[in-house]
Deep mutational scan, measured.
Amino acid sequence: GPGLTDLFKTEKAAVKKMAKAIMADPSKADDVYQKWADKGYTLTQLSDFLKSKTRGKYDRVYNGYMTYR
């Protein structure tokens, strides 16, 4: 089956995709945050998933999740 690194890459891609969806349409934020909360994502995990070469690119999404939880 898929190894943990593959799983991480898949999760990371999914999280980034959802983060971009929030940035494009902030009204989606609560739905996405709820999904992440259901998956039990911690802020540390989210921070790892949303690492970007562009500093602060996903800060709004991260901060939103922090206040959501």
Rank of each mutant, 00 (worst) to 15 (best):
F49Y: 07
T42K: 04
F49W: 13
A37S: 11
D48W: 14
D59M: 08
K57P: 04
T54R: 11
D48E: 14
F49V: 04
G64H: 03
T54Q: 07
P26Y: 07
G64E: 05
T42M: 02
S52V: 08
D6M: 06
A13V: 07
D30H: 11
A13D: 08
K12Y: 04
T10R: 12
M23H: 04
Q45T: 06
D25E: 06
G56A: 04
L46S: 02
T5R: 11
N63K: 15
K51F: 06
K16E: 06
D30W: 09
I22P: 00
P2N: 12
A14K: 10
P2G: 12
K51C: 15
T44Q: 13
N63A: 14
K53C: 09
E11A: 06
A14I: 13
G1L: 13
M23Q: 05
K9M: 07
A19M: 02
L43V: 07
A21Q: 12
L43E: 06
V61E: 01
G3L: 10
K16S: 04
V61A: 05
L43C: 08
K20C: 07
M66A: 15
G64V: 01
K28L: 13
Y68N: 02
A13H: 15
L4M: 15
T5K: 12
L46M: 10
K57S: 04
L7E: 14
M23R: 03
S47N: 09
G3W: 09
K39M: 14
A13C: 14
L43Q: 04
T54E: 09
K28T: 10
Y58E: 01
K35G: 09
G64F: 02
T44N: 12
A19V: 04
K9L: 10
R60L: 15
V15C: 05
D30T: 10
V32D: 01
A24W: 05
Y62P: 00
V15L: 03
L50S: 00
A13G: 05
P2R: 04
R69E: 04
T42V: 02
D31N: 07
W36A: 01
E11S: 04
L7K: 10
Q45C: 05
P26V: 05
Y68Q: 01
K9N: 11
F49Q: 01
L4Y: 10
K53H: 10
Q45Y: 03
K51Q: 09
F8E: 08
G64L: 02
T42W: 02
Y62G: 02
L50W: 03
